[in-house]
């Protein structure tokens, strides 16, 4: 089980109320897209699900985010374990400035998941295969990750998340710095991964949401306006703002 149930969730940057009473139930093992105009709070919501927003000064929250039935904002929750279970891929590929191998091994090492080198090598190979990067990099694992193309770097960032065996993967506009061909390839990868992982995808690109997600949430000014099957959102939304947005009338 790895569904995400968000209940009466509010988030503030100091005094600014960025997320207003969000309620949403994200089902497991499928792609759920979050769309909405710039500044509406998509990233803020996503970054609340792995609590990476805790690192921003002045952030405070109320309400619940339950993953597999447990509220991740409970005080006894270990954020390290939470973040291992809820991986995140950022807008701009951010591989560490170390070798390709070390990038994927990083999560395994800091979480002390495995210590046996053969096992680690094995996980690294599997993770790189899962993102279809293995054949390309298997002979240059010791090269700097920054020597890869942007698309490959983004794949590597996904691989390093997969390596620590999460059940949820959060992607914040993962294709926005890629060209159309690379975008298509990453989209294919995301769809494949949704067989095994619960995926939440923030995107500016409505075609992308329509192409690869099963459910779509539309946000506006810090509120969740509508959440439904992707097809319904794009063909027959119930709320006028959603319709205006998906038909390109604003945003």
């Amino acid at each position: 089980m790895s569904n995400i149930e968000i209940k009466n969730f509010n988030m503030y940057y100091t005094n600014f109320h960025a997320l207003k009473n969000i309620n949403i139930n994200i089902a497991e093992k499928r792609v759920t897209a979050i769309i909405g105009p710039s500044g509406c709070g998509k990233s803020s919501l996503l970054r609340s699900i792995n609590r990476i927003n805790d690192t921003v000064d002045g952030v405070h929250t109320s309400g619940e985010i339950n993953i597999s039935g447990k509220n991740i904002y409970n005080i006894e929750v270990n954020v390290g374990i939470l973040r291992r279970n809820v991986g995140m891929v950022f807008q701009r590929p951010n591989p560490f400035p170390i070798s390709i191998y070390e990038n994927v091994a990083f999560g395994l090492k800091v979480n002390r998941i495995y210590s046996n080198k053969n096992v680690i090598d094995d996980v690294i190979e599997k993770s790189l295969k899962a993102v279809l990067l293995w054949n390309h990099v298997k002979d240059k694992l010791r090269k700097s990750a920054l020597s890869l193309t942007l698309e490959q770097q983004q794949r590597l960032c996904i691989a390093r998340v997969i390596a620590v065996a999460p059940s949820i993967i959060l992607l914040d506009e993962p294709c926005s710095s890629l060209d159309p061909i690379a975008t298509q390839k990453i989209e294919e990868l995301i769809m494949q991964l949704s067989n095994k992982y619960t995926i939440v995808l923030v995107t500016h690109n409505m075609q992308q949401a329509a192409r690869i997600s099963r459910s779509t949430a539309f946000m506006f000014l810090g509120k969740l306006i509508e959440f439904d099957d992707t097809e319904k959102i794009f063909t027959n939304p119930s709320i006028k703002e959603t319709e205006d947005y998906v038909s390109g009338r604003f945003g």
Binding site: F90, F96, P97, G107, V110, N111, V161, V164
Partner: peptide
Amino acid sequence: PWKYREGALALGATKWQ
């Protein structure tokens, strides 16, 4: 760059790691 710290924390690393 901040993005490196964020990437590391998002993988479950502690601040010190």
